[in-house]
Design a protein around this nucleic acid. Sequence first.
DNA 1: CCATACGTTCGATAAATTCGAATATATGTA
DNA 2: TACATATATTCGAATTTATCGAACGTATGG
Lengths: 301, 301
Amino acid sequence: MITIKHINYTLAAAKALHFKKAAEMCFVSPSTLSAAIADLEAQLGVQVFERDNKKVLITPIGEKVLEKARAIKIQMQDFAALGQSLEDPMANALSLGIIPTIGPFLLPLVLPVLKKKYPRLELNITEDQSHALIEQLEDGDLEMAILALPFDIKGLSSYKFWEEDFYYVSHKNNLSSDIKEFNARNLNKSRLLLLDEGHCLKEHALTACEIGSGSKNLVKVTNLSTLVQLVASDMGSTVVPQMAVESLVDSNSLLSRAHLNQESPHREIALVTRRSYPGAATIKHLLDTFIEELSKKFNRN
Amino acid sequence: MITIKHINYTLAAAKALHFKKAAEMCFVSPSTLSAAIADLEAQLGVQVFERDNKKVLITPIGEKVLEKARAIKIQMQDFAALGQSLEDPMANALSLGIIPTIGPFLLPLVLPVLKKKYPRLELNITEDQSHALIEQLEDGDLEMAILALPFDIKGLSSYKFWEEDFYYVSHKNNLSSDIKEFNARNLNKSRLLLLDEGHCLKEHALTACEIGSGSKNLVKVTNLSTLVQLVASDMGSTVVPQMAVESLVDSNSLLSRAHLNQESPHREIALVTRRSYPGAATIKHLLDTFIEELSKKFNRN
DNA sequence: CCATACGTTCGATAAATTCGAATATATGTA
DNA sequence: TACATATATTCGAATTTATCGAACGTATGG
């Protein structure tokens, strides 16, 4: 088998036209270099150097061999340097999944910042439900996903970076804007509108409202924005996470909302990866950015 | 120092996505392959594979590393072949791929001649579908392939050496032997039997018969000979290239055939190689032999 | 004809590679 | 939960390979 060593020794000899000096350049003995070149010539079946005890010449065929050998040496050097050029953890393609009840609120906040901070980061975003994203993570189709916990994330790693409360949202006729705090016990559970099956927000909302899981939905909606429109039409009330309040509720004068005053926050947002995912530095950069932008927006520290 | 061994083992692992199988492909133990890959990753400073005991995935950075590694492997293989091509181009091992709709008809014609003209040529023949052969060419597992065009041959070089028309073949009860010419418009498209998916002849036949691509097959057959047997059983009719007519159709008294009189030939046969393949002289010798034998057989000049 | 310089050969030594057994860990199953 | 299975990895021993220095052969120049 021809190795890089063969190529390096041969190129050194071609440069020096002197085996002894070439051997010194390669930090090996003349016999080692001589043997390697003889071996290469045997494997190629052609004579690269025409040599006797006094002179070293390159044969016409040898010129062609050396030409290709030089190309390979360059390629190998580039290859060895490739790692360093790829070293920057934020200068690569990165596939990121996100659930629909986070995406429309978190992405507008962080994408412009990420783009500015890491211009060579090539984000590839997939929006889907938690279970689908987890499956894609396990299959290697995604590298990361942003999910809301609690959720069964199998053997995956999670990095929680935010937590938030829920807000009760209703038509202004049903909920005075003076009411800032709202207790789950007071809501009309029969008219609670929730997302369709499969959206983890449905389960989280049910928990927040102290309702058992598995209750039937009044409507079949997959989009939080659509759900809020239904509330604005006074078809019922709903529960939205804090990050959605501003864009979905406060911008609509028909709606009122009140903080659901449970004792603990009711949704944790986490970056999820495979346990074996190697990009620890990438994870840290992303988490830092997420936390910074969310804190700015929601005035927390 | 990064060696060819590192590159070969890594590429095998990337192909198998399974270290144990990759190790078998390389004829080494899993521990050897694992250590070599770990060493390469250490030297590059990047992780090429994301792996645990159950799955092996290629990281985004790894894709870039592998891309370059593939290029180097090809260059090294071409380098190893360089010397031989510079001496006697027809006195060496040569791996040649060929598709199943050409092999059984072209090889009996040319192999005896090649063996006589170039006794030191050691042909290594692989029969597979076009896309598989192209992949093997790109991987350096093959040096040449004989394919039927048109076909997407990526960045490979092609040397067209023959072109031929198609013949419509049916049971003699359905097609008078007086009919020498046949127009695609007259054939019963619903009873047209074609090869299974993946065989380029299926697509070429559909084009010759002026039928859109993607139509469903009536049968699932991968062998042209089998297909013709079905036609002899009057299960339908089919289309065969000229070089297959004699051995498959004319030898069977149950069958009739007529020339499909389209304005242009419908299958071009070409020798395909990597662009960097150094054996120009070898290519010329082979092409000359192919053309000479085909011309003799089919009385053309 | 001798002295010098150089590439090559060869056997002993040093270095590396490779393997197999053991280990650790994730996955699937009873 | 415990167990069986599959797989990558670790580690020490055995083997293979590479390397060196000394001896050799040979051409050149004085």
